[in-house]
Design a protein around this nucleic acid. Structure first.
Length: 500
RNA sequence: CGCGGGGUGGAGCAGCCCGGUAGCUCGCAAGGCUCAUAACCUUGAAGUCACAGGUUCAAAUCCUGUCCCCGCAACCA
């Protein structure tokens, strides 16, 4: 048995949860569930980033303490995860004591290693936003009341590890994925790397973790947030646990925070002398039409609306089926409906109805005995039993979309098999043949359900319970003849769209 | 010449690394079946594989150039 440690980013508590958050978290959940089904020991970590200026300001506006504000907002994410059937193993909040003390420990260590120094930071400061803005932001001209400001701050010697990082990326082709992101990072690293400002004076912003060697400062986002990946699995608090889980098998992130993870986080780990995560996987964005989803455009899709109407499994399936991991994907209502109707209603759901309907009608509602398999059945069996290994390869390559497609291909093979064998005809002339065909189709359906269970935990559990096959393995022959089928409504009722 | 990815039937994509009848899903047309959620199965129409050269017996696939689209260029999944 091997272990699998997967993380999502910790989400900023002030954002409203949207499809991007949901996507990353569902992806992590699908990978986790998959690894659990093959017997791996899984640790799935997600959580919230609760410090920083925006939180502080929002809390002040509401007349709440910053902590009370966070406590009020955190359930928005927790409730969404519940609705989305997310089975995480730990949920870290950066304001938790267990996290804060480890961040301080980390800062202390990095400081002792000589990787933190003070300097005067000079940059463009936006009075309206109460923060320093980047050169690029300044150049955009979107900020008013901007002035040059000098401030003493603490800096992390990121530059010191530049060459080591380049070497690591080149020596580990799976470290940054997909490959074109790796190339991007190597391109980025051809220029000299600067150091990282990691502090804020409390006089300006005090909602953060106090820097252990200077109480007038709090640490700013990087150490605060990224350290969650090691503080949660026990760094500095539970050595056995930490050694079991670290390094992470994969940090799942959006492509927008690739630099943060592959450069900032990585150099921090270098300073601590810890090993690096095996893979940092940057997925793409969900686009609406051809444009990015954004609050200002007002085109943000709330996953909860879709779930309410079509069920959580359909939404999970669509998100996994439609996006090639690493590339951007288009979210359209139309493609959602098509995906739902063709894959889930017509192919998967309908196969269940065909099989269970015939067994009900001609075989007294009991799964028939297959007798001796013929050539066609052997062919189906071969497809079925080779499926788990093929899917394992795809999942290990993070080709979730292909793994899902492959399973659906098998479902289509089963539909075709039914069509060709026509057990409804056989029942009139060759009862043994009808039994053999229906058993084979039902067994194929069972195995495909198991393969789809990480993506659609609820509906596949339903199918398996209808077949009386809960807790079974994707091995041929686990379906027991004689089992009484349960009656059921259509699994995925077709969505009828009004044509205009 | 900052770095990188891509341009394949009406739509969305795979194939390109390891040259050799252009594949999948959706849509469209005709037929079949009628167990099933008007679902399922078969067949068909539809592609100068961005463009121009080159290598080769043979190129979507390798090389060169051109045009167009997109991503990254330090902090929105």
């Amino acid at each position: 048995m091997s272990k699998f440690f997967v993380t999502t980013p910790i989400y900023y508590v002030n954002d409203a949860p949207h499809i991007g958050h949901a996507y990353t978290t569902i992806l992590a959940d699908v990978l986790s569930r998959y690894h659990r089904t093959i017997g791996d020991d899984v640790f799935f970590l997600t959580g919230l980033d609760e410090h920083g200026q925006k939180v502080m300001q929002a809390a002040q506006k509401r007349g709440l303490s910053s902590q009370a504000h966070c406590d009020d907002l955190a359930p928005r994410f927790l409730n969404l995860w519940k609705t989305l059937d997310i089975e995480y193993d730990d949920f870290i909040r950066t304001t938790q004591e267990r996290h804060k003390k480890i961040v301080q420990l980390v800062l202390q260590k990095v400081h002792e290693n000589g990787d933190i120094y003070t300097d005067e930071y000079e940059g463009w400061y936006s009075i309206a936003e109460e923060r320093f803005i980047t050169e690029a932001e300044y150049g955009s001209g979107q900020f008013r009341d901007v002035k040059k400001l000098k401030e003493k701050n603490y800096f992390f010697k990121m530059s010191k590890y530049q060459q080591k990082l380049i070497d690591h990326i080149q020596a580990h082709p799976d470290f940054i994925r997909p490959e074109h992101r790796k190339n991007e990072m190597l391109g980025f690293l051809r220029q000299p790397l600067g150091d990282l400002c990691i502090s804020r004076p409390k006089s300006r912003m005090d909602w953060g973790i106090e820097i252990p060697f200077d109480r007038d400062y709090v640490t700013y986002v990087w150490f605060d947030a990224l350290v969650n990946y090691i503080s949660t699995p026990g760094y500095g608090s539970d050595e056995a646990k930490f050694n079991k889980w670290w390094p992470a098998d994969v940090h799942l992130i959006g492509k927008d925070i690739l630099t943060t993870h592959s450069v900032y986080w990585t150099t921090m780990l270098f300073s601590l002398g810890l090993s690096l995560p095996k893979t940092i996987f940057a997925h793409g964005w969900w686009l609406i039409g051809q444009t990015k989803m954004s609050k200002s455009l007002g085109n943000v899709v709330n996953p909860l609306d879709l779930i309410e109407n079509y069920g959580v499994d359909a939404v999970r399936y669509y998100l996994m089926r439609e996006m090639v991991l690493g590339l951007d994907a288009n979210f359209t209502f139309d493609s959602f409906i098509k995906c739902y109707n063709s894959d889930l209603a017509n192919d998967f759901g309908n196969l269940l109805n065909r099989v269970s309907g015939l067994i009900q009608k001609n075989h007294g509602g009991q799964i028939p005995d297959p007798g001796t398999l013929g050539n066609e059945e052997e062919r189906i069996k071969l497809e079925a039993v080779s499926l788990p290994a093929r899917i394992k390869d795809l999942i290990n390559e993070y080709k979730v979309q292909e793994a899902v497609s492959l399973t659906l291909d098998f479902v289509r093979i089963l539909n075709k098999y039914m069509e060709v064998q026509a057990p409804w005809k056989l029942a009139k002339t060759d009862m043994k043949g009808a039994c053999r065909v229906l058993y084979t189709a039902a067994e194929g359906l069972r195995i495909s359900s198991i393969m789809l269970s990480p993506v659609m935990p609820e509906k596949t559990a339903l199918v398996l319970s209808i077949l009386g096959a809960n807790q079974t393995l994707p091995v041929w022959g686990e379906l027991k003849p004689g089992t009484v089928l349960q009656a059921h409504p259509p699994l995925f009722p077709r969505i009828e769209v009004e044509k205009n």
